[in-house]
Design a protein around this nucleic acid. Structure first.
Lengths: 154, 154
DNA sequence: TATTATATAATCGTTCACAATCTAATTGAC
DNA sequence: GTCAATTAGATTGTGAACGATTATATAATA
């Protein structure tokens, strides 16, 4: 037990989290290439397949991303013809993203992705469930600590 | 149970993994700013604090990163005076990264980071342990599936 | 009503991250 | 020993990711 053991990479929780996330996204790439989406575009499309229409702010909240990331990404999705972007008439500050027919059609092709991914990520059902719950616990706990910081600084 | 439920973001394991990783790195930022490191530089320094000296290839294996990411990152660490870079005499293809005294000194300051981070990531010991093991299970399982793919394509 | 504050996106600058390509060094086959 | 493969790292181009700033629209208030 050295003094600096807490700084060893194998004693960190953040590192396998960071590495696993990257490796999974990398693993998705060849599957997503086939439907002409990057990973971030894919999760944006997931929200849109479900919700059909929402503004940048709401999408950002779903994905933990801000307009700095989403604006160029949504322009690319628009160029590919998967979404349209127009200002809300009732409040012109809001940019409304709407999925197109072409975007909806893509869902059929995208259906193949999760099953293919599941095959190469061979966790059993219980592990998957436990991991899922713990990851959301982490996300919630970070959200919570953000609030505390914000309060302190006020 | 709709036909497309598997494409809902709340039914995906990859998404909370991706989001939690990003949020944790973001959470680290203010702490790492104080020691003038980015997150990726921080994990590279972690390996170097432990190993003192290794080449780019070995470092890349530790961090799941390639030379395209590491070359510019290591040049930045060199500019900051935390490492030196020189070619191996026995095999000039290898670039050896060596930590400097200044780099070693930084470890004392960095010691504050994991404890501060732990405070805002309030998982109990058991959860942390389970999460850690599951994340490495994911990493291993991806490594394994890579080999299979490689074999198939040969 | 005029002014201030807040909210929403867009823009800008910096740093990863990675696939693909390139260069140079080394190894291996013949 | 020569030439082809392999290996290590650097380079290039694209796409995030995010903090900070800016522009515009709306809301709140003096």
């Amino acid at each position: 037990m050295g003094k600096y053991d807490c700084l060893k990479i194998e004693n960190q929780l953040c590192f396998p989290l960071y590495a696993a996330s990257k490796e999974i996204v990398r693993r998705y790439k060849p599957m997503l290439d086939r439907i002409d989406l990057t990973y971030t575009q894919y999760i944006a499309m997931m929200v849109l397949w479900d919700r059909k229409e929402l503004n940048v702010k709401e999408l950002g909240k779903c994905l933990y991303l801000d307009s700095g990331t989403l604006t160029p990404l949504l322009k690319k999705l628009e160029n590919k013809g998967f979404v349209t972007r127009h200002r809300s008439e009732s409040d012109e500050r809001n940019l409304i993203i709407t999925i197109t027919d072409k975007g909806m059609d893509l869902r059929e092709e995208a259906m193949k992705v999760p099953s293919e991914m599941g095959r190469c990520l061979c966790l059993n059902e219980e592990d998957t469930d436990v991991l899922y719950k713990l990851l959301y616990k982490v996300l919630d706990s970070i959200e919570e600590s953000k609030k505390t910081i914000k309060h302190k600084s006020n």
